[in-house]
Design a protein around this nucleic acid. Structure first.
Lengths: 200, 200
DNA sequence: TTTTTTTGTTGAACAGCGTTCAGAATCGGC
DNA sequence: GCCGATTCTGAACGCTGTTCAACAAAAAAA
């Protein structure tokens, strides 16, 4: 049993696409390059995947799983909720810095016009946010689930923006260590204002 | 004198491209559509602009000017630095919500591989951040210029991330009013932790 | 004005892209 | 070993941004 030939080819194509995106970036991904790397014909790609978009989604799915694992690990290494949130932010930046092209593909990819992102993939994105919910609910026990979800999305988005714009080099490319320091300071400042405690 | 025929055509092409991006989005922009709308031949586009990328940059340049004006107006309408920063964030979200395609084009566009974004256009982006620096320096008189610039970039990026991910609908599309409320609350929380004041 | 030179415009042609599909090759059950 | 079903293959299609030789218009020179 183990693995059908069909699945083997699918994995080879997936691996080739992942390597291409990792090394050259999503924008440089070509169906012909991927199938050449995978050692199969051009048409076989469309046998294994519906189209290029779905192949990219499969790569992004793998990246999201790795990213999620990194975040879980970072969060688990801390005890207090504030430390967890700070560790999550830094782990997010670490992952983006060390996997710039794969990470960028998560957010740069767009489906063909009119085609929605499949539900299962949206849910994989939402999983990331769920990591934020735990520590955040400890800090804000009064918030109901809806508010908590919104808040988590907002906090995640803010950290994401800081990492994304710095990695895109939109406003002059930045030394990752400086970004890390800024991110640290920013999250700390936010957390200082987040709860009613007034620790100096 | 007024305007040479060459410049008139350039403006017609620019206007056509802007309308296309505004209505259909950057990804749907086609050289043939633009020149048809502008009433000229395909090749004329490359007479007026170096290539499609430079045409898009020209559109983005106009969008940035409008966005910058909106931010300036929002900031000027407030007196205290914290109010200014809050107004800037909300104005940023307003602009993105009311010009989704043009605003998205500012950050979704990528140059051809190997070609850097021209300096003059990078500086137009940096101008946006300068709006944040004023109020921020009032809140943190102790920060030197470098730190201040970094901090402003960070704050801007955080707000940008919140607006961008909500408009992209990455994690379930959101009611703009809810985003606005979340953004408001988030910025307020950050500002509460930003200075040494401890107002309840 | 007439001639010459320069400049601007045009759209057919080109290379590269994602995607399709008829035919060849392969597989699985008998 | 046979045969229907499945998979694989790569030439071909339609669309893309970009180029460029031919043409037209304007400017300069006569």
């Amino acid at each position: 049993m183990s693995e059908s030939k069909r699945d083997i080819l699918k994995r080879k194509i997936l691996g080739a696409a992942e390597k291409r995106i990792e090394t050259q970036g999503l924008a440089a991904l070509r169906a012909r390059d991927v199938t050449k790397d995978a050692g199969c014909a051009l048409g076989s790609l469309y046998n294994a995947f519906e189209d290029l978009d779905l192949l990219i989604l499969a790569v992004n799915s793998r990246t999201l799983a790795r990213l999620h694992a990194s975040l879980q690990s970072a969060s688990a290494s801390q005890t207090s909720p504030k430390e967890k949130l700070l560790a999550l932010a830094l782990a997010y930046q670490d992952f983006g810095t060390e996997n710039p092209n794969l990470w960028a593909a998560l957010f740069d990819h767009r489906m063909q016009p009119g085609v929605p992102v499949p539900q299962w993939h949206l849910e994989e994105h939402v999983l990331l946010i769920s990591e934020v919910i735990g520590p955040l609910s400890q800090l804000n026990p009064n918030l109901d689930d809806d508010m908590l979800a919104s808040r988590a999305r907002t906090v995640f988005s803010a950290v994401h923006g800081i990492v994304k714009l710095s990695l895109d080099g939109r406003f002059v490319a930045l030394d990752p260590d400086k970004v890390k320091a800024e991110l640290s300071e920013f999250v700390s400042q936010y957390l200082r204002g987040n709860t009613s405690e007034k620790k100096a």
